[in-house]
Every structure is written in C-alpha cells, then in structure tokens.
C-alpha cells in the first residue's frame, strides 16, 4: 500500500537505481538467452535438447544432484543437531568451517577433491583395493556435489532447531515418550519444511554447479558429462544456438526450482511461526 505521506526521502532514486541495475546486469542478459533460443524452430530446439549425449548429461546431473542432496539431508541434519544440542571440543571451529564451501572457490575444491579421491590420494588409496573408484567416475560428481551442498542444509536447519520450543519436548517426555519417539513425532515435523528447503537449495545449486565437478568427473561423453559442461562443449564448437538451447532448459529448470523453494520457505515460515 503506497503511503500518502512519506517521511523518509530517497524512494524514487534508490528504487530507480535498483531497477536500472537489475535490468542491465540480470534481466536483459537473461532475456537474451530466450531471444537467441527463439531463433530455432520448435523441432530444431527439441532435437538439440533431446540429443542422446545431452539427455545422458541430464540424467547424470539430476541423479547425482538428488543423491548428493539426500546425503546432505541426512548428515547435514546430524551436523546441525550436534552443533545446536551438544557441547563438544572444537565446536566453534566446526561451526565456522561449515561455510567453507561458500567461501572456497569451486575450482580449488575441484582439484583438491580430485587429489583426495585419485587412486593414490589420501582417501582413494583405501577405496581402490575395495574396487571403489571415485575420481573420474560418476561417483566423483556426487562427492563434489556433496561438498558444495552441505552448508545449505546445515544453515537452513540450524536456526529452526535453535528456536525450537523446549516445552514441547518436555511435554512429550512427561507423557512417557522416548527420545526417539519425541524426535520422530515432535521435532521432525517442525523441522521438515526447513529440511526440505535445505535439500532443495542444495539440489538447485548442485544442478548448475560447474567448477568443482569438471576436475573430478573425468568428463566422458554419455557417462560422466554434466549438463553445464554440454553448454561449454557446444560453445567451444561455436554452436551458439545449441549452447543457448541447453542453457534455456537449465534456466527453466532453475526457475521451477526457485518457485518450489519459495513455496517451501513460506511453508517453513508458517510451520515455525518465524518471519521470513
């Protein structure tokens, strides 16, 4: 509702600057993808985005992103739980380092994970005799995506866990519930929207991730190529229209995820009574 008398100055200039900068840097450039892709007929567009190699990349990107987000859902929840509920040595350091994937450049994470999981690496040397190969295999993609996604789950669940009402758990305990029953029936339902939000954020980030994945993936056509790499490959072959068509698919996917995440966050806010 526009207020008839505004006491504070600067609404016009600041909103004007915001809209101008937003249009120039974000909206116009993104619109160029849709414009460029529209130079293809629908059947041409379909041929590009449903080519077997591209479809294989969707399967890898989506499958590994889902798997990584699921791993993070379990272990991220556990980590958030320990950080909120327990006292243990080194906790402050752990809490601070959870954000490492946000701060560490993806290329650095990529080469480091590759070194760790290569056959002679710190971790790879123990997995190799077991017949498990991570680096240069689809499994490596998942490892990189787990790294990238972890803080999303922890940082989404943590504040909700901190704000949880102790009274509910005390009521459950006084009614004879075990801790596990209380967790499943009382705590988890309150956490669920936040947990799903964290899962969706981790998944959305993983689908578009590039830097940390390409080093460890091996990038074998039909086997370990992620969708963002398909855009790069097409660009390197000067196939701008093809690259744009795949980019449009990724953008539509990202918008759909954004929509889902907004819905989840609204649900989480309602469930926990927190203001967004």
């Amino acid at each position: 509702m526009a207020r008839t008398t505004r006491v504070l100055p600067g609404f016009g200039p600041t909103l004007g600057l915001t809209l101008t900068w937003l249009s120039l840097i974000v909206l116009l450039p993104l619109a160029s993808v849709f414009l460029k892709a529209s130079s293809l007929s629908l059947s041409e567009f379909w041929n590009v985005v449903s080519a077997p190699r591209v479809v294989a990349s969707y399967k890898l990107s989506f499958g590994m992103s889902l798997a990584a987000a699921a791993v993070n859902g379990v272990f991220g929840l556990m980590l958030a739980w320990c950080l909120v509920r327990y006292r243990f040595p080194g906790k402050r350091l752990v809490d601070a380092l959870v954000d490492l994937p946000f701060a560490l450049p993806t290329a650095v994470a990529g080469i480091s994970l590759t070194a760790l999981y290569a056959k002679n690496g710190w971790v790879g040397q123990y997995l190799d005799p077991l017949g498990i190969q991570v680096a240069f295999k689809p499994l490596g993609v998942m490892v990189a995506l787990v790294f990238i996604g972890l803080p999303f789950v922890v940082r989404t669940v943590q504040p909700v866990l901190e704000d949880l009402d102790i009274e509910h758990e005390e009521a459950a305990a006084s009614l004879g519930a075990s801790r596990w029953q209380t967790f499943r029936r009382v705590i988890l339902p309150v956490l669920l929207p936040a947990l799903l939000t964290g899962f969706a954020l981790a998944f959305a980030r993983a689908v578009g991730e590039y830097g940390s994945v390409i080093f460890i993936a091996g990038n074998i056509p039909m086997v370990s190529e992620i969708t963002p790499l398909m855009i790069i490959t097409k660009l390197e072959q000067y196939d701008y229209v093809g690259a744009t068509a795949v980019a449009e698919v990724m953008l539509l996917m990202a918008f759909a995820l954004l929509f889902v995440i907004n819905g989840l966050q609204a649900w989480a806010a309602k469930r926990t009574g927190r203001d967004r």
Partner: peptide
C-alpha cells in the same frame, strides 16, 4: 525474487548470456 535470480542461475549460463550479448 528477481534480485536473487543470479544465485539460481548456473555460472556457465551466467557467462553464456554475456557471450550472447
């Protein structure tokens, strides 16, 4: 939501849009 948009866009697509322009 629009301001947040760059967070949801794959970095590769972010580079591509400027190549297209």
């Amino acid at each position: 939501t629009l301001i947040d948009l760059p967070f949801s866009v794959s970095p590769v697509v972010a580079g591509l849009v400027f190549v297209l322009m």
